[in-house]
Design a protein around this nucleic acid. Sequence first.
DNA 1: GACTGTGAAGCCATTCACAGCT
DNA 2: AGCTGTGAATGGCTTCACAGTC
Lengths: 212, 212
Amino acid sequence: MKTIKIPEATIIRLSVYSRYLAQCDRRGIVTISSNEIAEGVGVSSAQVRKDLAYFGEFGTRGVGYNVKDLHRHIMKILGLNQKWPLVIVGAGNLGTALSMYGGFRERGFHVVGIFDDDPNKIGYKLNGVEVFPISKLKEVVAEGGAKIGVITVPAPAAQEVANALIESGVKALLNFAPVVLSVPPEIELRNVDLSVNLEILTFNLGYRRGID
Amino acid sequence: MKTIKIPEATIIRLSVYSRYLAQCDRRGIVTISSNEIAEGVGVSSAQVRKDLAYFGEFGTRGVGYNVKDLHRHIMKILGLNQKWPLVIVGAGNLGTALSMYGGFRERGFHVVGIFDDDPNKIGYKLNGVEVFPISKLKEVVAEGGAKIGVITVPAPAAQEVANALIESGVKALLNFAPVVLSVPPEIELRNVDLSVNLEILTFNLGYRRGID
DNA sequence: GACTGTGAAGCCATTCACAGCT
DNA sequence: AGCTGTGAATGGCTTCACAGTC
């Protein structure tokens, strides 16, 4: 049971590299150095090499990396060499926006169901995906093979929704509600708090600026 | 020019603490220990104390912290003791969702204008806020006193929009387009890539799980 | 006795610098 | 000569442990 600890920061950067490589590939670039990647995405070249070194040797000394190959390798590392069906709970503005968000589909994520407890929304189709009542969660997750659940309900409902998603068989949760969820350790959980990002900006505009 | 370096992770946690404290306050809790905060938000108590210590001494030894006071202090640190007008460029699904997102208003962020280059969208009101053509950017930013610009346009248009926002006088950018923007150093920039968060989940579901 | 505030220790991530290929 | 891959050094964040205060 060897566990090599990989920094989360590395995963985030791999995701950025993959997008940059895809762009280079579209431009017809065949070979690229760690330095060029570094400049393209705004990190150091040593960082690029270290990040890649966690997963193997993908380059050729004296030459660089083959763009297509490296891109494919990174996509595989990120688990994006397959489709990822997912469900969204909460058909409010954010849930609706996410269900139509092109950036997901591009990377292999596709929405198999959206859920809401508002009877007025049930049956509607958003971007071709039906809005179901929460009672259908288990059924749709199973049929669609969804391993990921996205939570876009108001904070007070989020824990309950998380429980229902886990109960229905989902293995990973992406939570947009500004609340700390408690889930069993085997469930992968990530929180995205949209306000936090604005608050880092306001902190930097105010406090940090004041003391420099 | 003394610059105390404050970890970004600290700012993120302060934001979480503030929400937890607000919740405690609503429940009528008057005093709270670092340990109780720690358990409530899932970090260590030493971490809570260290985070707060960057900014002063807010507690009483042997007692703990006054909930209301500490909350107010943190809000001030984050710069949330004032209103923050902002503009959103890109009236697609995401921009629309964000403009209606209640979580922003709660924390003092309010949208003074939404911009799009699609003539069909111009003049519409989203949640009481008008959709303007990009040509009105400078005017609306100035009148509304917006210091923050949110970018929710497709990736190819993002750099151009960033330039226009900076030109119009905005000091900070929150970018949702999956692209690396280049901006002058005095402009605060944060990137939110919604797909990256899903990709960390798929990495953890796939790779990490495989080697444990 | 309880809990904060903080120097010191420990740990993890990034950067450096160079050996090793092509 | 050019560029990767990597051990060693550095820097920064977190945890420890306890002195200080109520």
